[in-house]
Design a protein around this nucleic acid. Structure first.
Length: 593
RNA sequence: GCGGGUGUAGCUCAGUUGGUUAGAGUAUCGGCCUGUCACGCCGAGGGUCGCGGGUUCAAGUCCCGUCACUCGCGCCA
């Protein structure tokens, strides 16, 4: 007989009744009735009920064991009496009568119960991650994560892509996020960097003629986290294709992404491949106030700036007169509700740091609130007609400089829909946001900067760079968005060295700068570079969406906390003086601010 | 770096207007219990109310500072 088990804890059924078997696992729960004891024995696969009574030598041993101890049970499979069958358990028709028990590992008193799905403090969960990972939901999420990644690989290979690994120790990239640096022992004073993404490597792979590359790529960025952004490291489904237009990238990836979602959505509807909406960035900012709109939210924002020219509502009239923008966010049915809803929205906007959120609440066809009062009866009626509002609708107004008004309108759109419960949560709505601006104005530095990826191709190419106002140039740059999350970003790349230099010149960099910072790629583009493009999808975010998790730590094996500390392994930690000497590094006291 | 929330027993939480010895569930320990599946019953131990300072006759409760966790802003080409 196998030393530890003949079956797993999910394997036994009525067919095994009478068999002599051996199971190993964790003591999940105990129910001690004195003369008879029940133990739910758990392993990766499931639960099996173990029974011991006073005829069994196992009884006193199991009675004295704490939960989460590891045991091997020798016993006989018995059918349960009709009245004692547990329909909630796959193995609920049988139980194992314990003849022998061997304690493999005793558990101390637990800092974190494994059974049950109660919430526990984040620091304790991370410090005892090995216990947390035994819990049902997290355990299942991790398994699902692995299955999703495996499915992605299969679909990418089926689509003609090949996986290539790229270096982890590489050069610091001067653009973008903060790098993690790795000191070089052989070159005192010099540093490697961990890749923020394999961006340049994958472009070099295209120049090297590999045509269709992908990789489940680890990426490292030293930036502060969010609920949908892990500190330190994360994974991307990174891909690149040669001789393609952006439409081909979309057409290739829609079946992959829709396929992955469908495979793991548990029957929830997914936007079908071939029908992802392609929404220009400018349109998205207008209609949804965001470049990552949640299309499950039915609210569409409207521009109503012209309605407030010379309005009796002085604040808005003044904003419009000084070149500002007013956006309207309809709140269907809210007019019939309480005044408190409108006040709460306004307070929320102020708490978020905005100057406020105006509103009109229509009750039985009568518009109310300070805006309706001052704007003028006739003009208010015109406004309501233009917005197509009904007898008992409400509407909020976000006012300010165009960018701020759009952003506030977007946040308000989300909040209104949440408050009014307008979002169908059991759906995955996928769309592309396209035609991102190539440049943007950096107010701090008072100069033109790349708004996304400096390696992307400006629409109109060299001619656009030479003749257009830089801030009007669009890029062949696109994001894939699902339910309000950016889940992928990509572009057609700029493979022309001349255009690349010109693009950087507009941001104030010279040819010499480009050669110094992107030497490898710049050189590569002089020796026959195919037109190419691709994208990178956030694996962690896709998994989070498919697991229905609100937080990346719920789908990550060993995440760091918000301060980028690993509480289980105790990282980061000080280095030994010997290590520092070898690296020619001296630690200085951080200046106290 | 900034703003919000949370912090009371190992864990989940309650604790009124500032007022007696800070409670419950669960876990732990002891006792009872032969059909439970979140088993049940009896009992016991367990508290720096995150930490420091202040106001007060009196602080878990009010004020200031600080720390931890978290959400967001900045940041994230």
């Amino acid at each position: 007989m196998h030393a530890y088990r003949t079956h797993t804890c999910a394997a036994l059924s009525k067919a095994n009744v009478g068999d002599t078997i051996r199971l190993s696992g964790w003591v999940h729960r105990k129910r001690d009735h004195g003369g008879v004891l029940f133990v739910d024995l758990r392993d990766h696969y499931g639960l099996t009920q173990i029974v011991a009574d006073s005829d069994s030598v196992a009884l006193p041993v199991l009675e004295g064991l704490r939960l989460e101890s590891v045991v091997t049970i020798d016993g006989v499979v018995k059918a349960r009496a009709e009245s004692t069958i547990n329909p909630n358990l796959p193995t609920g028709e049988i139980e194992v009568f314990a003849r022998e028990v061997k304690v493999l590992s005793r558990a101390d008193e637990l800092p974190l119960p494994v059974a049950g799905e109660q919430e526990y403090p984040e620091d304790i969960r991370l410090r005892y991650r090995f216990l947390d990972l035994r819990r049902e939901t997290l355990h299942a999420n991790i398994v699902k994560r692995t299955q999703i990644i495996s499915d992605m690989r299969r679909r990418m290979e089926a689509a003609g892509f090949t996986e290539y690994s790229t270096p982890i120790l590489t050069a610091s990239s001067p653009e973008g996020a903060r790098d993690f640096l790795v000191p070089s022992r052989i070159h005192p004073g010099k540093f490697y960097a961990l890749p923020q993404a394999p961006q340049q490597y994958k472009q070099l792979l295209m120049v090297a003629g590999f045509d269709r590359y992908f990789q489940i790529a680890p990426c490292f960025r030293d930036e502060d986290p969010r609920a949908d952004r892990l500190p330190g490291e994360f994974y991307q489904l990174d891909l690149e294709m040669s001789f393609v237009t952006q439409e081909e990238v979309w057409d290739t990836m829609e079946p992959v992404m829709a396929g992955v979602f469908e495979a793991f959505a548990d029957g929830k509807p997914v936007t079908p491949a071939g029908s992802f909406r392609r929404i220009p960035y400018a349109q998205s900012m207008l209609d949804y106030g965001s470049d990552k709109p949640d299309l499950r939210n039915p609210i569409i924002i409207k521009d109503v700036t012209s309605h407030f020219e010379g309005s009796g509502f002085g604040i808005f009239a003044g904003i419009v007169a000084s070149g500002g923008t007013i956006r309207a966010i309809p709140a269907p049915g809210a007019g019939a509700g309480s005044r408190k809803f409108f006040d709460d929205m306004n307070n929320w906007a102020r708490a978020e740091g905005h100057s406020g959120l105006g509103y009109i609440n229509i009750k039985d066809g009568v518009p109310g609130g300070p805006i309706a009062k001052n704007h003028g009866e006739e003009r208010t009626a015109e406004l309501i007609a233009a917005l197509g509002l009904g007898e008992n609708d409400g509407v909020f107004f976000a006012a300010g400089k165009e960018e701020q008004a759009a952003k506030l309108a977007g946040l308000a759109r989300t909040r209104v829909a949440e408050q009014l419960d307008l979002i169908d949560k059991d759906r995955f709505e996928l769309c592309w946001i396209v035609d991102f601006p190539f440049y943007e104005w950096d107010e701090d530095l008072k100069k033109v900067e790349f708004s996304h990826n400096p390696f992307s191709m400006p629409q109109g190419g060299m001619e656009a760079l030479q003749t257009q106002d830089p801030l009007t140039i669009k890029a062949y740059q696109y994001d894939l968005v699902c339910n309000g999350y950016e889940i992928a970003s990509g572009s057609i790349r700029n493979e022309s060295p001349e255009t690349m230099v010109k693009a950087f010149e507009i941001t104030g960099l010279t040819q010499a700068d480009v050669e110094e910072r992107f030497g490898g790629m710049y050189r590569a583009f002089h020796y026959g570079a195919p037109p190419h493009g691709g994208m990178a999808a956030g694996v962690d975010r896709v998994v989070m969406l498919l697991c229905g998790a609100q937080n990346l730590r719920e789908i990550t094996l060993f995440p760091m906390n918000q301060k980028a500390e690993d509480l289980l392994m105790n990282a980061p930690s000080p280095a030994e003086p010997k290590q520092l000497r070898e690296l020619s590094i001296r630690v200085v006291e951080a200046p106290k601010s």
